[in-house]
């Protein structure tokens, strides 16, 4: 079996894997980072969104072997120790989650959205940018509110952290 090595949440991780291992399987099964979820087979629900080299991708539609040498950030690596990332805090504050299953993907997508579109996000932009993330519980109302608030609060973060 081939070996893959990547940096996950700041730690160098390596494993021998079946080539068909998806990034999400590598994270969940090899590394036991079970915060990244699988909610569909067709790359649409977004429960599996993580960052590769700072950009949001669907970990269910990426081979682990394709991530050789990459930097991967998952929901488990987003907080700064015990200090929640402003986007995590905003989801809690604004009740942007119910069952919690889509939440890691939503938060990772939202952080990426701020990277691309800045800290002042209007409702229309947020809704359009959530194209690739499904939630069945919240009706999106509070997710939209949370992302707008989280984006604003991210402006006071140190630049290096915000970029992650």
């Amino acid at each position: 079996m081939p070996t893959v090595t990547m940096n996950v949440n700041g730690r160098q991780r390596s494993a021998d894997i079946d080539p068909r291992t998806l990034l999400v399987q590598f994270l969940r099964e090899n590394l036991r980072l079970t915060g990244t979820h699988v909610g569909c087979d067709t790359s649409q629900c977004g429960a599996c969104v993580v960052h590769i080299d700072g950009e949001a991708v669907k970990a269910c539609t990426t081979l682990a072997l394709s991530c050789e040498g990459s930097n991967v950030l998952t929901i488990e690596g987003l907080a700064n120790g015990n200090e929640l990332h402003p986007m995590q805090e905003a989801f809690r504050e604004h009740h942007g989650l119910q069952c919690g299953f889509c939440t890691p993907g939503m938060i990772m997508t939202a952080v990426d959205l701020v990277r691309r579109k800045g800290n002042n996000l209007d409702e229309k932009t947020i809704r359009e940018e959530l194209e690739g993330n499904l939630c069945r519980c919240t009706g999106y109302h509070n997710i939209v509110k949370a992302i707008a608030a989280g984006a604003r609060n991210m402006s006071s973060m140190p630049q290096s952290k915000a970029a992650e």
């Binding site: 980072l33 079970t34 915060g35 998952t74 929901i75 919690g100 939440t103 890691p104």
Partner: peptide, 8 residues
């Protein structure tokens, strides 16, 4: 849930 520590 927001830290990826839910247990499904």
């Amino acid at each position: 849930f927001i830290t990826g520590k839910g247990r499904y």
